[in-house]
Design a protein around this nucleic acid. Sequence first.
DNA 1: AATGAATGAGCTTTCATTCAT
DNA 2: TATGAATGAAAGCTCATTCAT
Lengths: 196, 196, 196, 196
Amino acid sequence: MPRSQKQYKEIRKQKKQLILDSALELFAENGFHSTSMSKVAQKAGVSKGLAYNYFESKQDILDEIIKTGFDSIYSNFDLNHDGILTREEFEHFIRNSFKAIGKNRKFWKLYSAIIMQSDIAESMMEKYGDRSQIIMQMLNQFIKTMGSKDPEGDLMVISSLVKGSLLVVISAPEFFPLKQLEDKVTEACFRLITTK
Amino acid sequence: MPRSQKQYKEIRKQKKQLILDSALELFAENGFHSTSMSKVAQKAGVSKGLAYNYFESKQDILDEIIKTGFDSIYSNFDLNHDGILTREEFEHFIRNSFKAIGKNRKFWKLYSAIIMQSDIAESMMEKYGDRSQIIMQMLNQFIKTMGSKDPEGDLMVISSLVKGSLLVVISAPEFFPLKQLEDKVTEACFRLITTK
Amino acid sequence: MPRSQKQYKEIRKQKKQLILDSALELFAENGFHSTSMSKVAQKAGVSKGLAYNYFESKQDILDEIIKTGFDSIYSNFDLNHDGILTREEFEHFIRNSFKAIGKNRKFWKLYSAIIMQSDIAESMMEKYGDRSQIIMQMLNQFIKTMGSKDPEGDLMVISSLVKGSLLVVISAPEFFPLKQLEDKVTEACFRLITTK
Amino acid sequence: MPRSQKQYKEIRKQKKQLILDSALELFAENGFHSTSMSKVAQKAGVSKGLAYNYFESKQDILDEIIKTGFDSIYSNFDLNHDGILTREEFEHFIRNSFKAIGKNRKFWKLYSAIIMQSDIAESMMEKYGDRSQIIMQMLNQFIKTMGSKDPEGDLMVISSLVKGSLLVVISAPEFFPLKQLEDKVTEACFRLITTK
DNA sequence: AATGAATGAGCTTTCATTCAT
DNA sequence: TATGAATGAAAGCTCATTCAT
């Protein structure tokens, strides 16, 4: 009784995800370079050969992990895709960024380690740079709408604060409780816009 | 007739620095794990063997680089070493942190990449964790003195902002001009302390 | 379709033995330190990488060789494992020691070179020292039973003679024919016990 | 006031001996291959360069050590150089061999480790083989004179006993006290000659 | 689809030896 | 005579990747 075409596809998808998950965990824990394909395969419970059946290379696995994560960040941004950021959408974006970290700390730890490494960061910029810039422009517009006297400067400060807070939450969660920081940062963002 | 003690010492000092500089550049550019000792030696214009004459291991080079950088951060903190942070000392610390980055971007790029890499970060925490905590305590005390209603929360926000701004200055200086951010962040820090 | 568990196991077993044999030959011929893993792999007709697939380290190969040899010595000792050495068992032990050398000269050449090398000898003592002592005690008991006036002294002389004769048989078989020495030594051992 | 030709020669001789002594100690303690020239020079308190001024290579140092030792063994043999071994000369040889070990255990430990390593043993055989054979012939003659029924066999047994006892004294002096073994072995040698 | 034996390039590290001074 | 910085070949070992089965 051979499985149907569809069943095979489903199995493939699950196996692939299994490898991705194993890799993520190990990369986050021990670093990309210190994790061997042997360990990834072993953790996933498959052979090395099979892993190479699903991915072209070790780097390929990393790329796929990063892509997934990048996509998920921006799905929380400009919810109705009208190119304009409302106060609610802005707050939603900030808060959801924190929540995303709470849900998948391993990934974000790996992610932040990865984007710091210039060789990788550059190739990512090429791929995702455009999207990044669109977001910055929307934020800029939003800050202006809020009546900022120095939109450019405020944008810099706010994006520094958001990035910094996400970073400390990721790297030292024992000192920076997620929920508390989420509230403080959200509030601070609004307060930092210089209106007078 | 052999060279004098002094001559040998001078040679050693210069060569060692040469190797450190080469390593810093390559580590920052390509990451620690992706940089081989061969490349370091080649860039320094010496043989691999000589590099090992000056350093016990590749890790040893990294450690020395990190130590130097770490020391330089905290030389700008609590200038008179009385354990108490004044308004002026606080501002001086913030501003000098930015200036330090301006002076040695390469190092700070490496530094920020390194502290994100879990395998390396842990051994650093063991070495420098104590000093880090002392600083946090002094900052906490300072924020209280400034009349904060929520010192703990404000400390988290401020340190997030400072770390985040240093990070963006390091990783995307073309979008975040150093001097401008320095002023904005310094001012924002004072404004963020909730006094009412 | 992959090979069966059994097939893989068989391949592993054979290749492992192949590497062990090559290593033994080279270690015996040129010494442990003067034999590189490259040479071992080359002689076995495999890649260096594969050798490390089967053994954790070069030392690991040596350990396995030594263990095998050590086990084989003492399987000829105290045949019925009752802790007491009879006249027949004693003679059997002596004679079989010679026979063992005849069967695997290479190993014994390596073995005797190894136990002389202080750095390696120490770790062996830790592993096998206990067994060695048990044997000496049994020999001591045996010599007493034979009516020796100076068991301690006789034990020293006899074990010197046995060790020495095995040594010369190993290192200069052209001058010391195995069978002839076996007979002479066996007889001498009994004659050396001072009964009057 | 320049030193005289003779004084210089004396200094050279002392320095050379210093290096030889340091090398011997380290070779015996850690093995030849595990001892670096750096350590030898350091222990002797001279520079590496100077060591190479006195010796052509590391191997050269070892050769000189071995040669010295070899010469010293046979200076105790056939004292009056008449080619004939008397009972007294024989006993003197045995006893002095033990005494030599007592005087310089380090050397003999190294020596016995070295001669076990076949690559070295071979080159030694070429150099010292002749002398060895002369000794064996004299011993053979001596045993005949003593009225042995099986001179060839007795020679094998006796030389095995002597070599073996020297070996155990060197490698496990805590279990085989030198003086005691010297007496027992000397006596046993005479007893082992089969006269009936 | 699946296995793991096998490869080989490249890594970190060591060290006997040389040589400018 | 004396120094130690400098070299370079080779060591032990790792691991991404391939491929016969």
